[in-house]
Design a protein around this nucleic acid. Structure first.
Lengths: 208, 208
DNA sequence: CTATATATTGAATAAATACTCAGATATTTC
DNA sequence: GAAATATCTGAGTATTTATTCAATATATAG
């Protein structure tokens, strides 16, 4: 028309929240998505449901997130950050007492912690949500970091620390996950099993 | 109309294949679905794709399967049957040589087998396809059976065989799965790790 | 051969849901 | 307080995909 000043908003804005109001909106969207994921799993996580539970409109969701997976990105990042905090804490404890027993004890305690905080969310993120390549890489990187730290801590105690570290870390992770997070009928209590796991791993590093 | 003899086919037939032709159709549909699942995962498994790859029309799929999940049912059943065959074989070997070492050896070898046959399919079925309650129960039942057999085999050797059996079975399953099936960058070869796992488990049952 | 049961087809339907956009409303800036 | 910027709305669009069904073809029985 004659109106030459028509403002063309870019097709897909995806703004960064500037004002307090919008920052709250972003948070409320993330919380909503996290709860849906935790309570009802990936299958129930659709953008309309996220908006509804957050008490905002779908449009707002797409104002701050280019697509659904970008929401997962943030949720995953925050979850991994918690895990990394536990790792860093563990690393500092080990540097004070670098015995093989301590490594095992910290590892098991750390993974119990990771799997106890929000088990449902952890389950959703680790075996329900289909992670894309980049997301899987981030998860793998955390795992690699734990293995490397463990390997370094073991290097003065055992031969072939890389192999031992891989086994220790994967065993602690996989078994605490299965007993604390998966809802399989475990015939023995998770606590007993965690202790037993620690015994087994200790025996393994001390003997080998 | 005046035609009182109009045949009303039931709304949803879901026939059982009677003739050779249709039995082949059923098989070809199952093979198609299995390949798609194995090669491209759950996300790529839709009924139209199944029909296309099978070289039949979608209608034929629904002639023999009430819905998509019923196809998974059969694929899962067949996969679990293979696992149970390995279990039964293991149980018979153990009955010949009921030593604790043999139990560990058979367990690790068995899970390596389960995870080596068609790793991609196993991965899809165990962590990609969203199993419904009944399907998950069937999987859990197989796990329980393995634990019970292991527990029985250990009962003359160790104290608290149930706990030990749970740990052995879950460790063998989870770790072979991670190393053979998941595509995480394992810093050590799967073979080395399987051996090491067997060493660790042997040490554990023999010492405890 | 004809009738009847069995098998196959694939376009059409229906439902779910990711994502858009044009038009409000609110906040900040000057 | 008016213009500019930021935020919000939610009905509407587009796409995907599970499922149906009326028409058609093949096999078997009498």
């Amino acid at each position: 028309m004659t109106n030459a000043t028509t403002k063309k908003r870019p097709r897909k804005p995806v703004r960064t929240a500037k004002q307090r109001r919008s920052k709250e909106t972003v948070e409320v969207i993330l919380e909503s998505a996290t709860r849906i994921l935790s309570d009802h799993g990936w299958a129930a996580l659709n953008t309309n449901a996220i908006a509804k539970r957050a008490g905002v409109s779908v449009g707002s969701v797409y104002e701050y997130f280019p697509n659904k997976h970008a929401i997962i990105d943030i949720i995953l990042d925050r979850h991994l950050a918690q895990g990394e905090a536990l790792i860093n804490h563990g690393a500092s404890v080990i540097s004070d007492n670098p015995s093989a027993e301590a490594v095992v004890q910290i590892l098991v305690a750390g993974f119990v912690g990771i799997h106890s905080d929000d088990p449902k969310l952890h389950r959703a993120l680790s075996s329900d949500v289909p992670l894309n390549g980049a997301q899987q890489n981030r998860v793998d990187a955390v795992r690699a970091k734990i293995i490397n730290l463990t390997s370094a801590a073991l290097s003065t105690h055992v031969k072939d620390p890389k192999t031992k570290a891989t086994l220790l870390v994967d065993a602690a992770d996989a078994l605490t996950h299965r007993w604390l997070v998966d809802e399989v009928g475990v015939p023995v209590s998770a606590e007993v099993l965690s202790n037993e796991l620690e015994n087994m791993l200790r025996l393994y590093v001390l003997t080998a």
